[in-house]
């Protein structure tokens, strides 16, 4: 049997984040192809009880590093603990979510292991027993396949891309506690405080539905109509670069090359012309709707459905029509 696939999971406030299930599910798929097992690690404070849940998504074994220094994310603490477990697990492949946490953690592991890292992958496959990792470059203008010349093969997975397996409650994972080789006094960087954003907003990188506004919104106050639509659909509000540069929205909401790359089920672009940097950041969305006054706007080339018209009329009407379905 080849060496296991090892998954670094992420939890917040004692609950797994959805990306963790995505990565465990993908690990299961790869492990089946390789004929090997899936080992996962869970780090946190007072989280021992949730470890077993990963079994339902395909983990054979779950290591739990439960320690009060992990009340908040600690880059150094996570890195040292995971490196210690890698010695014992001896994995063929290590997978992480390409969440904010994973994007910080993965390169630290790579540097210590002196291995290559494929970040933000959108597709993984096994070719002749080795991992082939596919990831976008140049904000999605190019897709590249990577092979590793180092071991273990380390990859982070873009959120919202990999399907989650139907949980199977008959499957149980073996749970094992592991020690944390770090104390608070060893840490050179400490999270002092975690400020929640207003109203528990969904981050655009993880939203299933995004309603996005561009220059055509004409001002910060007008985003209210997009928020109403997004709230109705349980989605998030995104923005183009020009909307962010005009200070109408925060940079955290920016979609595109100097913002975030998103892949929701539904992307509704309102008053966005579709500059190449913006298109690169959202063209892997499953369904794209464009609402724009200009029939020649490049966004219509990418959209599954377009409405030519004034967004200030069309968006409220859309909200009204959708309300009839939702309610």
């Amino acid at each position: 049997m080849s060496k296991p696939v090892y998954v670094i999971t992420e939890q917040r406030n004692g609950a797994f984040r959805k990306v963790s299930f995505e990565v465990v599910s993908e690990a299961r798929r790869l492990a089946d192809e390789l004929g090997t097992s899936v080992v996962a690690i869970l780090l946190g404070s007072g989280v021992s009880g949730i470890g077993e849940e990963l079994g339902q998504y395909g983990a054979d074994k779950v290591l739990v590093a439960d320690n009060e220094i992990f009340e908040n994310y600690s880059a150094e603490g996570y890195t040292k603990t995971i490196l210690e477990t890698i010695k014992n697990v001896d994995p063929e492949i290590v997978l992480l979510p390409a969440s904010i946490l994973g994007k910080d953690l993965a390169p630290r592991l790579a540097a210590n292991l002196a291995v290559g890292l494929a970040s933000d992958c959108v597709k993984l496959s096994i070719e002749s027993g080795k991992l082939e990792a596919q990831r976008p470059m140049y904000a999605g203008k190019v897709i590249a396949d990577y092979h590793f010349n180092s071991s273990p093969q380390l990859a982070s997975l873009r959120p919202n891309i990999f399907p989650v397996l139907e949980p199977d409650s008959s499957k149980k994972a073996e749970v094992e506690n592991v020690s944390v080789p770090v104390t608070k006094s060893d840490l050179k960087a400490i999270v002092k405080e975690l400020l929640a954003s207003e109203g528990g907003k969904i981050d655009i990188s993880e939203a299933d539905i995004i309603v996005s506004g561009g220059r055509g919104m004409k001002g910060a106050e007008n985003f209210k109509i997009l928020e109403e639509l997004a709230d109705l659909l349980g989605g998030a509000v995104g923005a183009s670069r020009s909307a962010v540069d005009s200070d109408w929205r925060a940079h955290a909401d920016q979609v595109g090359q100097t913002g975030k790359t998103v892949a929701p089920d539904l992307y509704i672009a309102c008053g966005i012309s579709g500059a190449i940097q913006h298109l690169a950041g959202m063209s892997s969305s499953k369904c794209i709707v464009a609402i724009n006054k200009d029939p020649d706007a490049p966004i219509f080339q990418k959209a599954d459905y377009g409405i030519v018209g004034d967004l200030f009329d069309v968006v409220p009407k859309l909200t009204e029509e959708l309300k009839k379905i939702v309610e």
Binding site: R17, N72, Y73, S99, I100, L101, K188, A189, I190, V191, K192, E193, L194, L195, A196, S197, G200, K201, I202, D203, S205, E206, A252
Partner: peptide
């Protein structure tokens, strides 16, 4: 900035 919040970190 993290998903849904902001960490204040001292290093």
């Amino acid at each position: 900035e993290i998903e849904g919040g902001t960490e204040v970190i001292e290093a």
